[in-house]
Simulated scan of single mutants.
Amino acid sequence: MYLKQFKRDSSSILKYVPYVFCFIGFMAINILFSSIMEIDTDAVIQDSINRLGKNATFFTFLIPFLFFLAMLFLWWIFIHKYSVKQLTTCRKKVDWQRIIFSFTVWVLINFVILTVSYFLEPESFQFQFNLRAFIPLFIIAIIFIPVQTSFEEYFFRGYFMQFIAFISKNRGVALVTTSVIFGLMHLSNPEVSAMGVSIMIFYIGCGFLLGIMTLMDDGLELALGFHAANNLIGALIVTTESTVFQTDALFVVTSEPNIYELLIQVFIIFPILLFIFAKKYNWANWKQKLFKSI
């Protein structure tokens, strides 16, 4: 359905190569360079915050995604000659209700998680509301975080997943490949320095969650809503001193993250979320939609 609506002849598949290899190559070189040069990403972020302030640093992190998304859409429209709607969903039109539902459900689940965490360890939450800092942060986040998360979804769960599915001729290979590479793209994040590579469980787990949503629901809508909600919460509601989004959010969590929190998130909360979507949208034929050959 979603993957089957595009041509799979050799000339069509070759059109994917320039954008895919340019973006993946750019990210890989950035991670490799940071590793070889032993660049401390957290120190770089702190230096930028000291020079520019948190909001300006946050803005400079997000603004490249506007360029990435615009280039992807232009490439898709003028080189592939498809509409953005077709890259979004196989439905007759984009289902905004799905985006809103996914966004709302993930916000509510996070509200429950944060409330429980606060009552269990109130000393780990530091309230830091500053109206003058929060208003520009809110404006930047509301405008540019959906751009950042939308690019990642349109590229990884849309464009890149199509490319891998076409060359492998298998949905399962596309799901695994895009999920793992999505996780590995976060290797240069400061969270990796703070927690070690075990945090890849979360990032790769997120990749699988979003990929499963896309394949089971035949579109990006649920993934778009979830990802936007997740990153807005991290920017506006609660942040940590070791995250890439070091903002003037309402709360700063001072406790160190641990592997058990990640395991609960990935192996308990994510399946619950998928169960909710499955019941809401009557998902069926899981094996065929996730692993069947194309």
Score class of each variant (00 low, 15 high):
residue 283 W to T: 01
residue 91 R to S: 01
residue 254 T to P: 02
residue 36 I to V: 15
residue 35 S to N: 06
residue 179 S to G: 13
residue 189 N to F: 12
residue 185 M to P: 00
residue 155 F to E: 03
residue 205 G to W: 02
residue 157 R to V: 10
residue 18 P to C: 13
residue 240 T to E: 07
residue 207 G to H: 08
residue 173 V to G: 11
residue 229 A to E: 13
residue 39 I to V: 12
residue 188 S to V: 04
residue 200 M to K: 04
residue 143 I to A: 13
residue 148 Q to A: 11
residue 186 H to V: 04
residue 229 A to D: 11
residue 202 F to A: 15
residue 259 I to K: 14
residue 166 F to V: 00
residue 207 G to P: 12
residue 222 L to C: 05
residue 14 L to H: 08
residue 89 T to H: 06
residue 52 L to V: 03
residue 177 T to M: 07
residue 236 L to H: 04
residue 98 R to I: 00
residue 148 Q to L: 10
residue 241 E to S: 13
residue 250 L to S: 00
residue 236 L to D: 09
residue 73 F to Y: 14
residue 31 I to R: 04
residue 130 N to Q: 02
residue 51 R to C: 07
residue 180 V to P: 06
residue 244 V to T: 14
residue 153 E to N: 06
residue 145 I to C: 15
residue 117 S to K: 11
residue 57 T to G: 04
residue 48 S to E: 09
residue 16 Y to K: 03
residue 110 N to K: 06
residue 241 E to D: 09
residue 136 P to Y: 00
residue 55 N to H: 03
residue 80 H to D: 01
residue 181 I to M: 00
residue 111 F to A: 13
residue 44 V to L: 13
residue 213 M to L: 15
residue 267 F to M: 01
residue 272 I to T: 12
residue 291 F to G: 14
residue 137 L to M: 06
residue 73 F to T: 13
residue 8 R to V: 11
residue 100 I to G: 02
residue 144 F to L: 15
residue 105 V to K: 02
residue 256 E to A: 07
residue 226 F to H: 08
residue 280 K to Q: 04
residue 279 K to Q: 12
